[in-house]
Amino acid sequence: MSAEPQQLLAPDGTLHGDLPLPLGEISRLYRAMVVARVFDGKCSAMQRQGRLATYAPYEGQEAAQIGAASALEASDWLVASYRDAAAMALRGYPWSNLILGRTGDERGGHAPEGVRVLPPSITVGGHMIHAVGIAWAERLKGTDAVALTMFGDGATSEGDFHEAMNFAAVFATPTVFFCQNNGWAISLPTSRQTAAETIADKAVGYGMTGLVVDGNDVLAVHEAVRRAVSTARAGEGPTLIEALTYRIGPHTTTDDPGRYRDPAEVESWRERDPLRRVRRFLETQGAWDEDAQAAAEHDAGLEAEAAVAAAEMVAALDGDEIFSAMYAVPTIHLEEQRARLRRDGR
């Protein structure tokens, strides 16, 4: 049943079909992709310097994340995972929070009021159902807000994927399931996660619409998600979108992809770089040039430096504070333990 992945921008930057967004908006998305790539590189470098805990790079997945996140409204929710910083940032989750979290600080998970983005899920797959519950609550409250959840190909092997898809379809919750099939779940290829031809095919079993999109094409992703969001908002139920993309880097800074995959495969995906095709397209439209690129990279660098500085300025939680966010008000037991730590230390 699978069709060719939906595509608007070919890898060489040729546009097929109608322009889904004004050029200015496409430039904005491209600039966000540049920023995301600069941050990703910065975070990998910081991890090597021992300034971040384990880091999960998303290089190669910028189009998928920015394309999807850009199709949401401010009142919509994003429930994403640890590799989705580019999407979270676009929804207003500050880069300084994202970096703070990766330095090993719970306060990175505190999004500003009004930013409807949950802290990234670290366990695989358990968060998809949260986007079902959130969307369901919004409908019960009578709003038209939608929840989009992002997850990888590996997460679709979890039983929680099934329960989330099934609940969403049965109750027609305004949820969008956005799978970034990046080819690898740590060391295992997608073929070891599913025998289905595509992950999108799984939607059929739930009575849901499923579709495959070129995940390295920011315009196609944006368009596919925009439609799914609009369907959800109209009360017509959830959609599963499989964005075909590739994890250029390791799963996290702790593993060596050379042990499990062919470098030639990585190179072939570099040829399909998600940034390059947008840039080419914008250049052919006269909407981008070398100067714009240099300025975007320069600004992104400054933004990254500022976010890192803001994150690294935050003093570590003191002993008292580790007890202070377990409950609205600490229990007498926690108060007793807090006093013990204060008195005796560790």
Binding site: W77, V79, L118, G126, I129, H130, A131, V132, G133, I134, A135, W136, A137, E138, L140, K141, A147, G159, D160, E163, A164, N166, F167, V170
Partner: peptide, 21 residues
Amino acid sequence: DTPVAESGIVGAAFGMAVAGM
């Protein structure tokens, strides 16, 4: 009345709670 799925029930309830219910 939900489908027979305890993880789904609790996970959906969690999402609802996060959204203010």
